[in-house]
Deep mutational scan, measured.
Amino acid sequence: MAAGGDHGSPDSYRSPLASRYASPEMCFVFSDRYKFRTWRQLWLWLAEAEQTLGLPITDEQIQEMKSNLENIDFKMAAEEEKRLRHDVMAHVHTFGHCCPKAAGIIHLGATSCYVGDNTDLIILRNALDLLLPKLARVISRLADFAKERASLPTLGFTHFQPAQLTTVGKRCCLWIQDLCMDLQNLKRVRDDLRFRGVKGTTGTQASFLQLFEGDDHKVEQLDKMVTEKAGFKRAFIITGQTYTRKVDIEVLSVLASLGASVHKICTDIRLLANLKEMEEPFEKQQIGSSAMPYKRNPMRSERCCSLARHLMTLVMDPLQTASVQWFERTLDDSANRRICLAEAFLTADTILNTLQNISEGLVVYPKVIERRIRQELPFMATENIIMAMVKAGGSRQDCHEKIRVLSQQAASVVKQEGGDNDLIERIQVDAYFSPIHSQLDHLLDPSSFTGRASQQVQRFLEEEVYPLLKPYESVMKVKAELCL
């Protein structure tokens, strides 16, 4: 049975990233139509530049190519590739079939990587351009969430054990800070992308030097003109047959890092959902379990974690691919890159769409948070109580021993009897502590235990987050809708 299948058929496997999760716009960027249309555009740009620099290419040939950029006979191309065992030459023939007058000058002087690699770089750039505003929107939604809850005390956790208090907004800023680093890295790697350009079979530009009869300047002009037509500021000066596969490492490393950030955020949300302090959106008709109707599973956060793990592992592909590119190139890269580049971007696209949807509907339960604080705060307040007693004339050592005994009794009630923490009640009825009984409410005010959390939130948002989001103001209103 021949390899390949009808990918629109229910009898043929289709990647869930495309069929179930990723956005239509990201799927289109990695589609065959987008790819092969870009090949034709690159052939047109090459012909236009070659004509401008004096090669015998007519206006009629150029116009014929322009008129057929979208006229792609995919069936013919597939048949040609089956016959020739070469995808680029299959599309040269297919393009030439609908451009008979231009057929002889299509791909003039070029090698397969002229269309293959340059198209990949265009796709990487455009895919990054799709991700950047999506990530900015996630940051914006979380920034709104953090600002609104900047002063809401909550129990902090280290080692997932109760620690000092923080605020809900401050905790959210930990998430935002990681995503801001990801946004900066995505922008950097996007701006650092260079075009492969017009380089020939081993990167020496020998074929173009021959076409222009040894004119170095025209060869350099050709490279520059096509690079500018493709919208790049610069091209690699040095290439082998391909652009260095280190570029793929750079791009997928940034995406993998984004995956790590999203995994951490969504894990926190899942843990908070278990504590009943916070939940992701839950639709009115949504079913959490087929057997347990009360369940409210954090399905979206779980999906993000599941896909983020996949995204983090994909960076190993370009690392290994770059390491086995012998001399000017081997074909070890080809099949692998067809999979890992598309999957990385479709996965990143999915987790950003999902995280935006989550961040637009996060639900906080202040009463649950308050109750958990009441359970733990008495123990945390013991040092403040000791200091207040010393100020009232008591002995630190005597007070410490009193607190120690009462704390152990209260802990026994919590752990052995399943009761509430009654340390404060014990202190309130103990005559030894009568000098500070009137101060206990103040000493137990949760806001006095959150330090500068709310001020940190305000400063972080104003100095770091809002300036970073400013270039994306025009796209901030787009909502994230999930079908599944």
Score class of each variant (00 low, 15 high):
residue 2 A to W: 06
residue 6 D to L: 11
residue 8 G to K: 15
residue 9 S to I: 15
residue 16 P to V: 13
residue 21 Y to I: 00
residue 29 V to E: 00
residue 44 L to C: 12
residue 45 W to P: 01
residue 50 E to D: 00
residue 53 L to V: 14
residue 59 D to A: 10
residue 61 Q to N: 12
residue 61 Q to T: 09
residue 64 E to K: 07
residue 71 N to D: 12
residue 76 M to V: 15
residue 78 A to H: 11
residue 81 E to T: 03
residue 92 V to D: 01
residue 92 V to P: 00
residue 94 T to K: 06
residue 95 F to R: 00
residue 95 F to H: 07
residue 95 F to V: 07
residue 96 G to H: 00
residue 96 G to N: 06
residue 98 C to W: 08
residue 98 C to L: 13
residue 101 K to L: 14
residue 102 A to C: 09
residue 104 G to A: 13
residue 112 S to M: 00
residue 113 C to H: 00
residue 116 G to C: 12
residue 116 G to T: 15
residue 121 L to G: 08
residue 128 L to G: 07
residue 133 P to L: 15
residue 137 R to D: 08
residue 145 F to M: 00
residue 148 E to D: 13
residue 154 T to I: 09
residue 157 F to H: 09
residue 159 H to F: 03
residue 167 T to G: 02
residue 170 K to L: 06
residue 183 L to D: 02
residue 201 T to S: 04
residue 204 T to M: 02
residue 205 Q to C: 12
residue 205 Q to A: 15
residue 209 L to K: 08
residue 210 Q to E: 14
residue 218 K to W: 14
residue 225 M to I: 15
residue 227 T to R: 06
residue 229 K to H: 05
residue 231 G to D: 09
residue 232 F to C: 01
residue 233 K to Y: 10
residue 235 A to F: 13
residue 240 G to D: 01
residue 243 Y to T: 15
residue 245 R to W: 02
residue 246 K to Q: 02
residue 248 D to E: 09
residue 255 L to A: 11
residue 257 S to F: 06
residue 260 A to M: 05
residue 263 H to A: 10
residue 263 H to D: 01
residue 263 H to V: 05
residue 274 N to G: 04
residue 276 K to V: 02
residue 277 E to K: 04
residue 287 I to P: 02
residue 291 A to V: 02
residue 294 Y to F: 06
residue 310 H to M: 07
residue 322 A to H: 14
residue 325 Q to T: 08
residue 326 W to R: 03
residue 330 T to L: 03
residue 332 D to F: 06
residue 337 R to H: 03
residue 341 L to G: 13
residue 343 E to S: 09
residue 345 F to I: 10
residue 348 A to W: 05
residue 350 T to S: 15
residue 351 I to V: 12
residue 353 N to H: 04
residue 365 Y to G: 02
residue 366 P to Y: 03
residue 367 K to G: 10
residue 370 E to K: 09
residue 371 R to W: 05
residue 373 I to G: 02
residue 383 E to S: 04
residue 384 N to Q: 12
residue 394 G to P: 07
residue 395 S to L: 05
residue 395 S to C: 13
residue 395 S to H: 09
residue 420 D to E: 05
residue 421 N to S: 10
residue 421 N to K: 04
residue 424 I to F: 10
residue 425 E to W: 13
residue 426 R to Q: 06
residue 431 A to K: 12
residue 432 Y to C: 08
residue 433 F to K: 03
residue 435 P to C: 09
residue 436 I to K: 04
residue 445 D to I: 09
residue 446 P to N: 05
residue 448 S to F: 13
residue 466 Y to C: 13
residue 467 P to N: 07
residue 470 K to A: 13
residue 476 M to G: 15
